[in-house]
Computed example of a mutant assay.
Amino acid sequence: MIFSVIIPCYNCVKTLERTVESIRVCGLSDYEILLIDDGSNDGTAELCDTLCVRYPELRCVHQENAGVSTARNRGINEAQGEYLWFVDADDIVSPLNMESILKAIQDGVDCIMFGMRFRYVHHGKVIMRETMSCGNPVELTQQNLGSHFRALFEKNYFTAIWNKLIRKSVLTENQIYFDPTLTNYEDLHFSLILADCCKTILALPEPYYCYVNEFGHDRTVDRIQRICDVIAYTDKIVAPFYTLNGHLCGAGCLPIEGLSEIILRLYLEASYFKLKTANNNDMKRLCTAVQQSKNLHKEVQSIEKLSVADQRLYGWMMNNSYGKIRLFMRYRALRSIGSRVYRLVKCYLGG
């Protein structure tokens, strides 16, 4: 068997069948769709069983609720395909160019990455669309990964897990699994460890994966609110960056261009999302953590390459300028509301 499509399923009874249908007609051959029911209680478990009876290429595994990372790890262990594709139960996929994909598989490529489309909906109506693509195919090895990494990172090729066909043996031989303790950026963490173990990666420009989300609902904010110390948490996320870059440099390969800027942005993004709902005590703890962060101090020489807003936020946190931080967050909140209202009005009025 060539492909195993792994779908973690938790309370997705309204969207799962649409996701499965998009996979069945995307052009895959010699494949299975593996449904990992993660203790659903809304009828998803029963739907999984129904779909498995209807379609012989589907298999289902039921487990107690343990989170998406544990469900994906179960999928890795259960999968029979040579290449794995992780798909979420509320997204859809587009028809594939199987000729280029099968050629890459015949050439022994460890990981095939592709572009993504983003669809933001409001009460069933598409409000906003976005596409991220590398533009042209890019063949990556350890020798040139550092020079191409930043451009691909900014196009979401490394931050998501859904836009990859991964040779299973790379995961099993290197014991690469999702970290169940991570609730945000777990895909990035996994992808960086994966990239470090791949001899060859092919990045394709076609946006085969479509991420569907409710307009105005940022899941990242919800997840970060549940993290007590976002700076310590981000330390864990960025650790594979340093490992990957160290291995590249140690092998005489090019280092990751713009690494300092990437890491700084991750810390400041986590801080910004945490500040969205932070009370005074939360803000003080966050500023103290920023001031004590070894990684931030190590990369701060690149702060001037970031946006003016990022530079100011960092400076205010370093100087305990709580009043300026509050005003900045209120301004950003109002601007975000205005942007959402504008897009909604434009969409519903047909502009």
Rank of each mutant, 00 (worst) to 15 (best):
E21S: 04
N136P: 00
V53P: 00
A203D: 00
E304M: 12
Y211L: 12
P56H: 05
E32H: 09
N281W: 10
I237T: 03
N174T: 00
E46A: 14
I36Q: 12
H62W: 02
R335H: 13
T44C: 08
I105R: 00
S133I: 06
P95R: 11
L47S: 06
R18D: 10
V126H: 01
C9K: 00
T44S: 15
R343T: 00
L58D: 11
R335S: 13
E186S: 02
F86C: 01
S147G: 04
S40N: 12
L264S: 11
G315V: 05
L165M: 11
T141M: 08
T220D: 14
N156P: 00
Y157S: 01
G115K: 11
L306M: 01
L188E: 11
A278T: 01
L145V: 01
S147Q: 03
N163Y: 03
L47K: 03
F273L: 09
L165C: 04
S307K: 00
T200S: 06
C26G: 13
Y208L: 13
S40D: 14
Y157C: 05
I227E: 08
N319D: 14
V345Y: 13
E130R: 13
K284F: 02
L51V: 08
I303N: 04
E257L: 00
P240G: 06
R74F: 04
D91L: 13
H122K: 02
R335G: 15
L96C: 07
P137C: 10
R312P: 03
I7H: 14
R24K: 11
V25G: 07
P207Q: 02
V68P: 07
V68S: 08
D91Y: 09
L327K: 08
L344N: 01
F158L: 04
H122T: 00
I224E: 10
V345D: 07
F273T: 11
V13A: 05
H297Q: 15
E78P: 12
L35Y: 08
E57W: 02
Y83F: 03
V290L: 07
V87N: 06
Y348E: 04
R18M: 12
M98E: 06
Y267E: 15
I303K: 11
Y267P: 15
R340V: 03
K276H: 07
L264H: 05
C228D: 14
S339H: 08
Y322R: 06
D90H: 14
E304F: 09
N295K: 10
Y10M: 01
A270T: 02
S260Q: 14
K236A: 11
N77C: 10
V345N: 09
S307E: 01
L313T: 13
E21A: 12
V87P: 09
V221A: 10
N136F: 04
L34M: 08
C253A: 14
G67I: 04
I161R: 08
